[in-house]
């Protein structure tokens, strides 16, 4: 009943209103709405970036109400004065935090590189492995196809704590403990990529494949020449999402990597406390850079993908 009311509302009030606007006004409205949302979404990042340009003192003063466990707080009775007021523009722009992070503490850079060593092979590996598997699941017909795929999905849904101890045992047997491979291998063979690419490949009209087969191509050629290029948006999306997931991983390095020198940056950033906030903001800003770059790069491919999919075989 409510949907009826909503429907008629849309039909009789909103629709004419929007239809009444010129195309330009409509576009402007859209932009406005999107802009509003975008600001909301971006605000935490902006906050991180601006705070990273502040000196440590400024941050401590600014964030005093939400910092410090106990002592100074429990002494003065709470009046109504103390709430955090967000400061957007630093009183004094300073790069001291970045200086500290990059120059005085080179360990950050090592950890950054560790993150890279972990993430890049996983992305590359998973794309290759999953594309192959995805092709099999989407284009080929074989008896175990559906049940096998189903198993993939279900296992993928397991939270990592469940497979942690068995993974640990297996890694130990294979002699992989304390090596990056203990994390990279499971990363490469994750089900997510298979899942995603299989979905994308289902889109490819069978007509294309059929045509290629009639032309005498074998499966491998079909795979390489037709299916893969058509999957560009999917692969771009996969790369982006994998990067984000793996760049942020914390629990696995803690357990599988014994050495302190091998820990990635995500582990360090998983526990930030007071007194380190300025550094934390700066480190976070640096930490975000690769992901932002990755996003910009992949976005281009998404666009390319549109153009390609419009082209007829």
């Amino acid at each position: 009943m409510a949907s009826e009311g909503a429907k008629s509302f849309i039909r009789f009030r909103v629709r004419p209103l929007i239809a009444g606007m010129s195309a330009r006004m409509r576009k402007t409205l859209l932009v406005a709405v999107l802009a509003g949302l975008a600001v909301l979404f971006v605000f935490p990042i902006a906050l991180t970036l601006t705070q990273s340009l502040m000196s440590e003192n400024e941050i401590t003063m600014n964030l005093a109400p939400v910092s410090a466990e106990g002592s100074s707080r429990s002494l003065d009775p709470r009046a109504d004065s103390d709430y955090v007021r967000l400061k957007w523009i630093p009183d004094r722009v300073t790069l001291s935090q970045f200086y500290y992070v990059l120059v005085k503490q080179p360990q950050f850079l090592f950890m950054f590189w560790n993150s890279v060593i972990l993430t890049v092979p996983i992305i590359a590996g998973q794309i290759v492995v999953s594309a192959l598997a995805g092709y099999a699941f989407s284009q080929l017909r074989f008896r175990m196809r559906e049940p096998l795929f189903f198993i993939y999905i279900v296992t993928m849904l397991m939270p990592f704590q469940v497979t942690l101890v068995p993974n640990f045992i297996i890694a130990d047997r294979l002699g992989l403990l304390n090596s990056y491979l203990a994390i990279i291998f499971p990363g490469i063979f994750g089900a997510f990529g298979v899942f995603l690419l299989r979905q994308f490949m289902t889109y490819i009209p069978y007509a294309y494949v059929e045509a290629a087969r009639i032309d005498g191509c074998n499966q491998l050629q079909i795979f390489l020449r037709i299916v893969m290029p058509l999957c560009k948006p999917g692969i771009a999306a996969l790369a982006m999402l994998l990067f984000i997931d793996n760049w942020n991983m914390v629990e696995q390095p803690l357990i599988f990597l014994q050495d302190a020198t091998k820990q990635p940056l995500s582990v360090y950033l998983s526990v930030i406390g007071e007194g380190e906030r300025g550094i934390a903001f700066a480190a976070c800003s640096i930490y975000m850079m690769p992901m932002i770059l990755m996003m910009l790069y992949a976005e281009n491919h998404l666009v390319e993908g549109i153009q390609l999919s419009g082209i007829k075989g």
Binding site: L37, I45, T48, S270
Partner: peptide
């Protein structure tokens, strides 16, 4: 890109800002 931004933030930042 701006809607994708939240994904890019490390957990620590989210936590800091959440607290704030």
């Amino acid at each position: 890109i701006s809607f994708l931004f939240p994904l890019v933030i490390p957990v620590a930042s989210v936590v800091l800002i959440w607290q704030i």
